[in-house]
C-alpha cells in the first residue's frame, strides 16, 4: 500500500516536473514568457496589466479552476488504480507486428534506408498518427452522444487555465489511454516490421521531438485566457491557441469546431476548421452555462454516468443527438 501511495504522489508530482507532461514547470514557464510577450509586445499592454490579465483570480482561483485541480488529483488516483487493467502497449504492438507478416509478405531483410532517416521518419510518423488519433477521438467525443456525456466534463470549464487539460471524466482518461496505446503500437509495429533493428525516435527530454516543440511553444496557452492567433496561412497548418479557445466557446457558430491538437489538416479535411478572430472575446463552457453543478464532484463524476445510463435506455431510437442536446441545454438542478 505504501508503494501505491508513493507511486501516486510521484505520478502527481511528475505532472508538474516531468517534461513528458504538458503542465510541467518547463512548459508552464515557456507559456508564461510567450503570453507575456504577446500581451506586451503584440497587444501593447503595459506589463502590469499583462501580468494581472495572466494571473486573473477568476482564471486561477474560481470554482471552475478548483474543479480542474480536483480532477487532476482524483483522476491520477483513479488511473493509478486501474492502469494495471489497461491494455498493454507492448502486447498490442506484438499482435500488430504479427499481422504485418501476413499483410506485407516480404519483410525487408537488409536495411533499406540509413538509420537516421528511419528514425526521423518514425519520429514524424508517430507524431502525425498520434495527432490524427487525438483529433479523431476528440471528434467522436463530440459526435457520439455516449462519449459526449463524458467529454462535456472538459467543456464545462467556464474559465480556461493550463490545468483544464486534466479536467476529464475517468472514462475519458481510459479512452485516452486506449487511443495512445493503439496509435503508438500501430506506429511501432509497422516500423519494426519494415525496418528491423533500425527503429528509434528522436526525443527531447523524453518526449517526441515535435511534441516537445509543440509543448515548449505554448501548448499550455490553448487552455488560457491569453488569445494568441497565428496568421491565417499558419492556422491552416497548425492550430493556434486562439483556435482551440474557439473550440471551447459556447457560441453556436463555434460548436464542433477545431478538434485538432497540433495539425489543422484533419479539421480542414473533416470540415470542422475555424480560423480564430483577432481580439476574439469568448464565453467558455456548455451552451448557456446553466449547469452550475458541473464544477462539483457530483457534476464532474456522477452526472456524466447518469446521462450515459439514460442514453442507453434511449438507444437505438433516432434523434438521440437532438434529445441529448436539448437535455444539456436545459438547466438541471
Amino acid at each position: 500500500m505504501d508503494v501505491f501511495w508513493t507511486e501516486y504522489w510521484q505520478a502527481l508530482l511528475g505532472d508538474l516536473i516531468s517534461p513528458q507532461k504538458r503542465v510541467s514547470l518547463t512548459y508552464l514557464a515557456s507559456a508564461f514568457v510567450i503570453a507575456l510577450a504577446a500581451l506586451t509586445l503584440v497587444s501593447k499592454r503595459p506589463i502590469k496589466d499583462a501580468l494581472s490579465h495572466i494571473f486573473k483570480p477568476r482564471v486561477w482561483l474560481s470554482a471552475t479552476a478548483f474543479a480542474d485541480y480536483q480532477t487532476m488529483v482524483i483522476n491520477a488516483f483513479i488511473m493509478k488504480l486501474i492502469s494495471p487493467l489497461l491494455l498493454g502497449k507492448m502486447l498490442v504492438a506484438i499482435w500488430l507486428f504479427e499481422q504485418w507478416h501476413f499483410l506485407i509478405s516480404d519483410r525487408p531483410e537488409a536495411n533499406l534506408w540509413p538509420t537516421w532517416l528511419v528514425v526521423l521518419c518514425f519520429t514524424v510518423f508517430q507524431f502525425v498518427v498520434d495527432d490524427f488519433c487525438r483529433f479523431y477521438l476528440h471528434r467522436l467525443m463530440h459526435k457520439w452522444p455516449f462519449l459526449w456525456a463524458f467529454h462535456q466534463v472538459h467543456h464545462s470549464a467556464t474559465e480556461l487555465n493550463p490545468f483544464t487539460v486534466f479536467r476529464a471524466h475517468p472514462v475519458e482518461s481510459v479512452l485516452f489511454s486506449l487511443r495512445s496505446t493503439l496509435s503508438q503500437a500501430f506506429s511501432i509495429a509497422l516500423f519494426f516490421y519494415l525496418f528491423p533493428n533500425q527503429v528509434d525516435i528522436y526525443m527531447v527530454l523524453g518526449v517526441n521531438l515535435f511534441t516537445f516543440i509543440f509543448n515548449v511553444l505554448g501548448a499550455n496557452l490553448r487552455h488560457s485566457n491569453v488569445v494568441i492567433n497565428y496568421p491565417k496561412w499558419l492556422e491552416k497548418i497548425f492550430i493556434s491557441p486562439a483556435q482551440h479557445q474557439i473550440h471551447h466557446s459556447i457560441a453556436k457558430a463555434h460548436w464542433d469546431k477545431n478538434f485538432g491538437v497540433v495539425l489543422s489538416c484533419w479539421d480542414r479535411g473533416f470540415k470542422s476548421f475555424h480560423y480564430s478572430d483577432q481580439g476574439q472575446s469568448l464565453k467558455f463552457g456548455l451552451y448557456d452555462n446553466a449547469q452550475a453543478n458541473h464544477h462539483s464532484l457530483h457534476g464532474l463524476y456522477l452526472l456524466p454516468c447518469l446521462q450515459f445510463a439514460r442514453l442507453l435506455r434511449l438507444t437505438p431510437y433516432q434523434g438521440v443527438v437532438k434529445k441529448l442536446k436539448s437535455r444539456a441545454e436545459k438547466p438541471r438542478v
Partner: peptide, 21 residues
C-alpha cells in the same frame, strides 16, 4: 526478433495519461 521494441514502447510510455486535448 523484437529487439528494441520494448525499449521504444517504454520511451513512448504515456498510456496512462489523464491529459485532455
Amino acid at each position: 526478433v523484437l529487439a528494441g521494441m520494448d525499449e521504444l514502447t517504454q520511451k513512448l510510455s504515456s498510456s496512462t495519461s489523464n491529459e485532455n486535448d
